[in-house]
Design a protein around this nucleic acid. Sequence first.
DNA 1: TATTGTTATACTCTATAACTATA
DNA 2: TATAGTTATAGAGTATAACAATA
Lengths: 151, 151
Amino acid sequence: MITPPSDLTDHLGYRLRQVSNHVSHAFARKLADRQVTVAEWVLMRTLHNQDPIAPSQLASRMGLTRGAITRLADRLVEKALLARLANPDDGRAQTLCLTERGAAFVPQMAALADQNEAECFAHLSADDRAVLLRILTETVDRLGLRAPPVD
Amino acid sequence: MITPPSDLTDHLGYRLRQVSNHVSHAFARKLADRQVTVAEWVLMRTLHNQDPIAPSQLASRMGLTRGAITRLADRLVEKALLARLANPDDGRAQTLCLTERGAAFVPQMAALADQNEAECFAHLSADDRAVLLRILTETVDRLGLRAPPVD
DNA sequence: TATTGTTATACTCTATAACTATA
DNA sequence: TATAGTTATAGAGTATAACAATA
């Protein structure tokens, strides 16, 4: 019994990648005006309205390594969007928090995210959008993917 | 009137990225045994059961640049999974096709894709899977994203 | 010795733009 | 001159693993 390879376009994973890539790239183009990348935005958004947080904690929250956080943080500090705060009690430790300028950026970028959202999913009914969000959220929970400010 | 930044987790784009990244990475780990990356797999799958095709045509079909195709093709040729065929009528032109070994790999990798699919979306009802696929496919069509063997 | 953050290194993915050979 | 493919270069995004400073 021969099983032909299932059609690539029938794979959820494949479609997911197609759509996700498009949405992310469209968003990246919008953020580019602000000189910020999508990864930087996610970090900033995660930090927004949060108490200062240690890089290592941020790493686990975002599902990245500490090294990756160092790099992202370096770039954001350079742009004066993020600050590193020393810990007076422990010379090794530090915490990260947005600068005033960085915090002011967040709502602007969130508006761009909303706009991107509207553009990319304009064709879907409110119902379909809700269903899509539900399914994705369920999947994130089931797969145990890092949800942002959970803990 | 103050509008707080909408919750990041409410963005479809954000959730999409989370899920898509996870699914792709899980698949990449499976493919790693075969020494093939996800991008290479997509190229191979696109070529499977197709007549030999020009790199430039493949580029537009996959939504990549010619340079990107050259790189992917280089790696696959190195692994003896892909061959470049010269065009006797035009010294500039060439076509790409899978080697016998490459063609034999495709069904194996498709099985891995199916397995990955099953693992990542096991928690969804058949109904939800179908709805998700429908919504994503509609979105791909509406956004005019490159669907693989369309033309 | 264990922990925190940094650095060195490496690789994939992809783009842009310049380049080569051929038409 | 236009076209097909390649190459050079660059940068994002990430990982692993070694390292320095501090505890």
